[in-house]
Every structure is written in C-alpha cells, then in structure tokens.
Design a protein around this nucleic acid. Sequence first.
RNA 1: CGGGGCGUAGCGUAGCUUGGUAGCGCGCUUGGUUCGGGACCAAGAGGUCGUGAGUUCAAAUCUCACCGCCCCGACCA
Length: 565
Amino acid sequence: MRWSQTFIPTLKEVPAEAEIISHKLLLRAGLIRKLTGGLYTFLPLGLRALRKVEKIVREEMDRAGALEVLMPALQPPEIWQKSGRYETAQGVFFKVRDKAKKEWVLGPTHEEVITTLVAGELSSYRQLPRNFYQVQTKFRDEIRPRFGLMRAKEFLMKDAYSFDISEDAANVSYKKMYDAYARIFTRCGLKTMAVEADTGVIGGKFSHEYMAPAETGENEVAYCDACHYAANVEKAASRVTLKTGTTQALEKFATPGVVTIEALTKAPFNVPADEQIKTLVFMVEGKTTLLLLRGDHQLNEAKLAGTLGTATFRPAEAEEIYTALKAHPGSLGAVGVKDITVYADESLRGMADATTGANEDGFHLRHVDVARDIVVHTWADLRTAAAGEPCVNCGQPLKIRRAIEVGHVFKLGTKYSEKLGALFLDETGKQQPAIMGCYGIGVTRTLQAVIEQCNDKDGIVWPASVAPYTVCITPLSVAAESPVMQLAVKIYEELQAKGVDVILDDRDDRPGVKFKDADLVGFPIRIGIGEKSLAKGEVEIKPRGGAMLLVKAEEAVSQVLGQLA
RNA sequence: CGGGGCGUAGCGUAGCUUGGUAGCGCGCUUGGUUCGGGACCAAGAGGUCGUGAGUUCAAAUCUCACCGCCCCGACCA
C-alpha cells in the first residue's frame, strides 16, 4: 500500500476525550474515530490490526478443534426467557421492535442461541464433544462505556461454547481453550496472566480470566510470585493470621462520639483495627442480616454473593439498622444478638479479647470472645484480600496489581443445556444434559490492550504479529525518477512479493513529518532511504524501538526478512 | 443511576468573573522559499459559541431547562 492511497489521519494533538495512553494512541495514530460514546469506526489502519488479531484467534481456535459458525446478532427474547436470563440480564440488553411491535434483543452474548442450536442438532453421545465459536459483534448497554474500545456499547468478541458428555470430558474441553487462550495472547505480543475468577451472573462452576497487566486496567489481581497463585481480587483468598488473646469477662465501656474503626484506634482507647470486629447490616432478599469482619478488613461483595447464593442484597438503611439493633452505625455488634442471621468472616474464628459495638449508642464491648459471645450461623470467606497478606497456597505475601480482562473461560455445567433442552442419549440410552463451557475473548479490547502495553513516548510499538503493516519504507525523495524513490519502489515490490505487509510512504512531505508519523503509528521496521546513505549504496533499517542498522541496498530485503523471521 | 468536570472552526484552546466587532495554535487551500526528526513567509477558506426558552437596547458571557461528552462508583470481553 502506498501511504498516499490509503487514509491515515494522524493527529499531533491529543483529543480531549482520551484519558489513557492506548485510547490517545488509537486516535492519534488514525486507527479509530468516535461516532458517539462507546461507538467507534475502525479506519483502514485500525481495521488491519484488528483483522490480524482475529486471524490469530481463528488459527488457534481451529487448531484447538473448535468449529467456526456465525450466529444472529438479532435474537428473539423467548430464548432468554427460557434460560431465565431475560430478567437477570435485563440491564445489558439493547432492545428493538419490528413493524408488528414485537420485541427483539441485540445479542450481548450467545449461550441461548448456541444451546438452542445444539438442542435441535445433537442428540447422541457419539456426536460429542463439540465446540462452536464465532467472531461477532456484541451489543451491551454498558452502564458506563469508557476508554475507547476498552468498554464499548458495541464490540467484537470471539465466543466459543463447548458441549461434552461428562465432567471429565468437559474439563478436557476447558483445558484446550485455556491453553489456546495463552497461545493467542502470546502470539498477539500481549503479556497476560490467567487468574481464578468469580463466575458472576453467567453462572457456572469455576472460571479463569486472562488478565493483561496494565496500570489503567479496570480489575485488580492478587498474585503470589512464590507459588504462582493468582486470582481476581473479587475471588482471591488469603490466609488468616489469628488474633487471639486471653479470655476475660465482657466489659462495656463508654465511647462517646466514637463511630468509626479509625476513631477507636486512637487515644484514649488505642484498640488496633485488627482487634476490632466490624459489624455490617445488610438486607438480603428483604431479610436483615449481620456480616462480621475484622476491623481492618473490607467486605468483598462478590464473595458475599457467592456465599448467600443471591445477588439481591444491599446495605441496610439507617432506620432498618436501628429497628434491628436499637443502635446506630458505629456502635453495632453481634454480641447477644438472636433472631438475626449472622455471617462471619473466617478471620474471626477463634478470636478472643476483641472489641466491638455494644448495640447502645456511645458504648463498646471489650474482651469479646467470639466463640463464647457471638452466635455465628455461617462462617465464610467474606473479605477482600489485601497486598502483603499471606498467600493461601504457600504463605508468602500476596501482591496486587491492576489489569485488563481480555479473556474469560467458564466451566458452565448444565445450567443452559437443561433449560434449553440440549440433551443427548448416553451409551446406556439414558437422556443427559450436555455439560457446557463458554469462552470469550474481547477482540477489540485485546487490540487496545496491546497498545496499552506496547508504546513509548513517540507512539505505538507494535508487535509484528498484529501491526497494521510490518514494514514502512520511507524514501526522502518521492519524485518518480529519483534514484531514492526508484530504489524504494523496488524494495517495496520485492517485499510485497515475499508476502510482507509493507507500506510505502510516498507522501511529498518533509522527512521529520514522515519519521514522526512512522513512529506514532509504530511500524515494527522502517526502511529509510535518503540521498546521503544511498550515495554509499546503503539504506537504513530501523526497528521501532531498536537501533538503526545500515545495510547495502541490495541486502535490504533479505535483512528485513531475517528480522521478521 | 449517584458524585464531579466540560461543551467556542476538523483537532487543541483563549474569551465568560465584570454582557457591547469571536481570538490564538495545529490542520486545510493558494503562491513562494525550504527539505534527514512534526519548516518559514505571504494571502485565504472555515464558527447557528451544544439545543431551546428567558433577562436585556444588546448574550459565547447572566438565569432556567434539555441534550451530549469525559472522569469516579455499581456492570463486563
């Protein structure tokens, strides 16, 4: 491609709408343009890079034995009613109506469609396992689209769905996808880590997320360098360091005006936060519920949802709290509480000599022995793991870093196959629901994650595998009869003949403009051809972010091919 | 939806407090000089100042409503 014949609208200045580096570079390098919030047009260069990510995804999915299909983006609400997600996924749908006023939904995901297909087409264990995938536009009415392609209303996703006859077989399918994902991201030049994840509203038994570490990521990952434990903080566990003390008689003491953990740590009380019990009041499906945590710990709502088996809960209002405990927040406790369900975090098990609210405004209790003084209905892991806490596996301190979720693999089980009738006959002639897995990669998000990880002060530094063009030839004179341009065209044609994606910057611009643009867009290799070096029979080969190499003109093509190999 | 910020030419912005001819840089057009890291000179084109009401002799500027965008939180690939 000749630069003058394509469309690469680079920007010197950063559009005000962009906050993070990858979003700025997507706009500045002329890869995308915004139509409106959360909706973007891919320009020729951006589309080329996107297609390269897609190609890698397809190759690895095919290699893993998945079969490509293409499902409708427009879906009937009936299948969502069948699965039960018409209600639970309510918030994400874009809905449309046809001429007859019938409602349709734009697909946010395709479990319902694929399971309906399989229900009709597969009926014997002999036909399984099967794994279908597609690369398709998804529509989600995101609460808050942001960061360009990172979270958009419409985005390109690779989704795959596996169907198996047994748990063991399903685990094999899961592992295949898990491994394929690692290869996909590695080939895209993206550093990722697979972490244990919460399954959320999709449901299912377990899942892993592929996380691309980046300061601007929307997720936090807890991980251990010593044993390679890694989990989304929504899911991450840490070991408990037991705080025990001597058991003495309960004692109520006055704490006028003290309504925070923090205040109680100060003089004259001096009670360390990790010796306090934090009492939270939640309304769980309409029922008042107490949650107990150590004073220095934070509630993890994803874990709470998992423990409760429902996501229908909220912090109680002030009046509800007073009605239940006859005290206001800051003086709450669970000592002596009856008739209210109490959930306690594991870190409190066996705790003694603790301090907690007395359920009387202005008073706390000390010398609390949890086992002796509090009736706990359910013990569970309810706290958010924090950096420095001991790893559940090996006890070494956990670290926490931010990351971008680029892929997610789920072991689903039979939730959808049962509801939508994806049943098969086993060897004994017995009807069984297929065991499913589902697997997603945000293709557009992956592209942006690559840019977020691969850039410097001058622009993008593309991995060759996903660069829109791998080589940019920059002749400093573009007059057709000039030796510089003639050599440029010759090298251009030779590289094209070798199947290299090459762009020839034939614009009649000053060298500085061309160099800056090439750096901004970030082509992996730039071949500079100017009169000075050509006088010595040499051309410049400049890897993006690497050192320039002077080579004989006739060796340029083989040099470049060697570098790309 | 809650909290915060912002809408002025394709992009980045000044002007708004204290109402009175809409300004600058980049980009764009034409001509000339330049030509190895975002050139220079000259002449131009381009604006319903987000929209609608209101106050006023007069509104980018003051008031109200609405719309849109960005950031923080809940959601997710």
